[in-house]
Write a protein that binds this DNA or RNA. Sequence first.
DNA 1: GTAGGGTTAG
Length: 582
Amino acid sequence: MLQFGATPNAFTFPFILKSSASLSLPATGKQLHCHVIKLGCKSEPFVLTALMSMYCKCKLTVHAQKVFDEVPQRNLTVCYNSLISGYVQNDKFLNGFYLFSEMRLRGVEFNAVTILGLVPGCTVPGHLWLGMCLHCLNVKCGLENDLAIANCLITMYVRCGSMELARRLFDHIPEKGLITWNAMISGYAQNGLAAEVLELYREMELLQVDPDAVTLVGVLSACANLGAQKIGYEVEQNIRSSGMRFNVFLRNALINMYARCGNLEKARIIFDEMPEKTLVSWTAIIGGYGMHGLGNSAVELFDKLIKTGIQPDGTLFVSVLSACSHAGLTKKGLYYLDIMKREYGLKPGSEHYSCVVDLLGRAGRLEEARKLIESMEVEPDGAVWGALLGACKIHKNVELAEIAFNKVVELEPTNIGYYVLLSNIYTESNNSEGILRVRLMMRERKLKKDPGYSYFEYRGKTHLFVAGDIGHPQTEEIYKMLNRLEDTVSELGGANKNGQEVINQEPPNIMGVHSERLAIAFALLNTEIGTDILVIKNLRICGDCHSFVKRVSKIVDRLFVVRDATRFHHFRNGTCSCNDYW
DNA sequence: GTAGGGTTAG
């Protein structure tokens, strides 16, 4: 327009500024600002608001504030709204909130847009009370029927970690929009409440609300968590017959779902078929290989990615480092940590170090692992010390285990897993005093063992078992089957690869028979010979169960796959694919 | 006639 000699005015500037803002071009924006001044439009409220919005979209909040300071007394609400949401979207929630206080002190009226600008700023549990205040304010002003605000408030509660409040609000909305459903579904998915996701999805189907890609990404993520491949497959069929089949987000979610349901072949096919892969696609498939202990395939793909010249990010390095540790590729893993820093200029975080500590620990290089922790440029978190503690268990180093334990309980005092780990280390070294000390500590802190559960999907139904479960209709048969297995397995007996006796080392267990055993016995009872068995456990499989399944797989000609909290264990003919040994 | 807003993958 300027090139053609036409002169913009107060009516046309907002349009021009808006398109410049959508391109996020600060230089062009600044030029336009000069034109605004030259052409005498600098006191037009519409132009000023558009200018502020443009500056905020270009991340130049300081410039936006300068414009705001010159705003005349008219149309103040809209100007405040613009700058408030600008601050919030640039992660300057406090500035936005101060501005809102100022607005109220000056007696400037606020409206729905003001609240919509502020609510997304409440993103951490610490902001929950502020978010609740905004919610109250919203109701007080009679804006509770504004669906956009309600959607936004749901997301706020989700981000602040309060799923109950999110759900309460959701249930009170009489006419929900698709975005309302999506906010709730993806909220549940992000918080790991997979069963709730599927429940809501069912409800949507019943009410004949058509899902979109956002809905299905949440549903697929829930399927991945639950190992619900059958539902995932149905979703895939729906996607294929709809206009969403080329959606990259959905394809990534499908790769992730199939990989986490144990179907790596299918995950790989979808990955290979993608014409335009994103970093997330690579991360999903590489992480999938890593979880299954296929470190070499993971590394191969990672190297292929590097050759294409795509810049890997921190998350991808987590996948590849964890793949190396699960497959025992110590040298390769250390190399990747090195190039991550030197070649890609990425700063390793705690999540990277915990993989590498695990990697060194498994290889028996405990001292190096400890030195690595000491050399970290970020504060080590619980997972880092926890990895060292796990390595001490493998290599029976009680002294270092105590050091790691003291650190880890300081950082995660309520994580029961670490107490159990140390107690098991003491058990192995016959340190009854130590065991007592840990138990006392747990009692003092009122810590109870998280209920471990396992499940097996059979004919589209999930059969869930907790330790010592007697609630299943087939309970009697399951325990009979288990007894038979245990008898056969202990008759088999024999020595492990270190030459030590491994028969029935299990201490008497107050929690009853472990859930994974019940799930496996159920699966053996109900499935045909020759089918593979996938059991999912929410916690990590314990050493005793691991060796039990290993021995069962020697006498029963099946592939047993156990997915636990961190990876897949494939058992066949008396061996396991994982790099662990107990 | 013009400006300010909500939900997505690891």
